[in-house]
């Protein structure tokens, strides 16, 4: 439990610092012969939170915080249960990302769609894809080139908060932009 709340704290710190999500590279191995549990799979104690001075947030004229390169800081967009519509706040923030992406035509992003754990896994994969598509379509409607945008849905497989509570669910129903 301690680790969990520490994790949540770290996550919000991360969000504030806008660390671009480092995608873990796909590595799967077939194990026809059962492999003994690796020691690395055991829960490693969480590293003590590193206190890095946060870059002073810059805001643009609409009041959205930007990082040093001018990229909008917020990159997570939340949804209602079994819904795929963007909220007004999300649209406003996405418009900022659209501006940034149009000015930086070589930047490509992955739009990751997620769902909460309720309901079935494959339906939630479809739901996550719908949410990611809604974000992609909106960015395209703002003039972002489709070649800059790639979508992937993780459904309920990648929660940020693994608990079974309303607040965890509301955090897990999301789309994340990975620059």
């Amino acid at each position: 439990m301690n680790r969990m709340s520490l994790r949540t704290l770290l996550l919000s710190l991360l969000a504030a610092l806008v660390l671009a999500g480092c995608q873990s590279t796909g590595d799967a191995e077939v194990a026809p012969e059962p492999e003994v549990q690796e020691a690395t799979a055991e829960a490693a104690p969480a590293a003590p939170p590193m206190v890095t001075p946060a870059p002073r947030p810059v805001t643009n004229e609409e009041g959205f915080p930007l990082d040093a390169s001018g990229r909008p800081i917020g990159y997570v967009f939340y949804f209602e249960f079994d819904r795929t519509e963007l909220k007004p706040r999300a649209r406003a923030l996405l418009a900022e990302h659209a501006e940034y992406l149009k000015e930086n035509g070589s930047v490509r992003i992955t739009i990751q769609g997620h769902a909460d754990e309720r309901g079935t896994r494959e339906y939630n994969l479809a739901l996550g894809e719908r949410r990611a598509s809604a974000v992609r379509d909106y960015l395209q409607s703002m003039g972002v080139a489709s070649s800059q945008l790639r979508i992937v849905s993780y459904g309920e497989e990648r929660p940020v908060d693994p608990r079974s509570t309303e607040s965890a669910w509301s955090k897990n129903r999301r789309v994340e932009l990975a620059y």
């Binding site: 994790r7 873990s24 799967a28 191995e29 077939v30 492999e35 829960a43 990648r158 908060d161």
Partner: peptide, 26 residues
């Protein structure tokens, strides 16, 4: 929801015995 997340596809007898890993992935 941690960096050490792993997924294993397992096969076992119907009573849970003789579990073996078919695939392991991050």
């Amino acid at each position: 929801a941690t960096e050490a997340e792993t997924f294993r596809l397992e096969m076992a007898d119907a009573d849970g015995a003789n579990a073996q890993t078919l695939l392991k992935s991050r």
